[in-house]
Design a protein around this nucleic acid. Sequence first.
DNA 1: AAGTGGTCTAGACCACAAC
DNA 2: TTGTGGTCTAGACCACTTG
Lengths: 259, 259
Amino acid sequence: MAVPPSAPPEQPSFPEAGTPAFSPLYQQIKGLILQSLQAGEWKPGEAIPSEMDLAARYRVSQGTVRKAIDELAAENLVVRRQGKGTFVATHAEQHVQYRFLKLVPDAGDRDAEGPAQRNVVECKRVRAGAEVARALALRTGDPVVQVRRVLSFDGEPTILEDLWLPGVAFKGLSAEQMAGYHGPTYAMFEIEFGVRMVRAEEKIRAVAADAQQAALLGVAEHTPLLSVERIAYTYNDTPMELRRGLYRTETHHYRNELS
Amino acid sequence: MAVPPSAPPEQPSFPEAGTPAFSPLYQQIKGLILQSLQAGEWKPGEAIPSEMDLAARYRVSQGTVRKAIDELAAENLVVRRQGKGTFVATHAEQHVQYRFLKLVPDAGDRDAEGPAQRNVVECKRVRAGAEVARALALRTGDPVVQVRRVLSFDGEPTILEDLWLPGVAFKGLSAEQMAGYHGPTYAMFEIEFGVRMVRAEEKIRAVAADAQQAALLGVAEHTPLLSVERIAYTYNDTPMELRRGLYRTETHHYRNELS
DNA sequence: AAGTGGTCTAGACCACAAC
DNA sequence: TTGTGGTCTAGACCACTTG
């Protein structure tokens, strides 16, 4: 009994007048674990306390903690490993190296081709325009880091993308960091800036390459390209990155599973 | 105890030599429920027996049935409604009208625009080519129904798509049926042919419209279009539809959520 | 052998919907 | 009031990993 009868919980639930305000105990526990994750009590890749420990900490049964963790695992915030423990999910050392990249080669899986080569075209501090500000929940004119880069697979330029990141959280981000880090960019964000992207939304369109884009990707002008606009979120649905990608799809395709 | 100690279950588990062959009880129950769904013991939209009834039928506890149904619900094969029961999922009368269609208007949600107008260009019986046969797990030359149609939103032609369906399962499918049915095409498949699509895979590319495609969609030749190739599956991962769509993305976009 | 997550049970009670 | 799914508990045991 963590909340209903007595015992001062870390996050009491005060039913507000007018709202049903019924929240299952396991949801409250999930919220508490989420807070600890967000606060950095356990770092990415580390194990969180065992189910028994958490049950004792929150004064609930193991089954209740279990259901809370089940949901966190379903949302990819945490990874369970039988016999070892439950670990904070990370973009590094994850089996799926590029968790948010859905572009795959037409033949074979992504492991078949080597790691992407990164070519940072530019990395500069700018002020947010109206669109960028809206996407990142900032004010127009707020500082923003803008990055433009080209990703190549097996030497073939395949993705041209622009990134916009909130200047406050990503103060000091350099072109060298963007280019030098080995592994997913999101893993670098975790390590260097303590920013964990937990989910993202993408809007996809077909567009024609303009002269500049064609030159950077090594294709003819007007070549059809996949335009992928992504907003990536940290905890609490806070947007932390706007990314506009142009994907060549002659030898790759965007793969999606529906259910 | 449905399987471990005694009682002749409907699907015994014979551990094969060499394989661990450990399957949790709830997975076995899930398999049994799946069989009943596939056999049509409960029709789409109908309620399946209550958890208590199923627990009695399979001689397990309610909690075990619960976990089995939880997974089926997570896979959208079944829908739970508190106080009412658990129902076989259906493409008809579903809140999300077009479950597999990820194209949405740039402004507002899909409910903002009226239902799609369908324009069946042709509907004919053909023999499967190599590609279609492979996608549908048929042999080259097997009978197939091919449909070409244009979908318009608010009077604007937006999607041109070709469908290939196994001729055996979809014998007698007519252009009138494709055009006349009100509601999702997949709902019509359920009702008229008893075929339930439970999941799908899509491969997305950017292409340029050729002369014929441009004419059908009312755009200029070489207009960039989203090419969406979908394979839809029934139970047991059996492919039952190949669909190649060309989406206009001037006022709509393909929306995807990543986690 | 000890510790972790994973399974299974039995029973109590709550929230919701329908009669 | 009854029946449904939803929550919570406590305890037993299993499977996997590590020392």
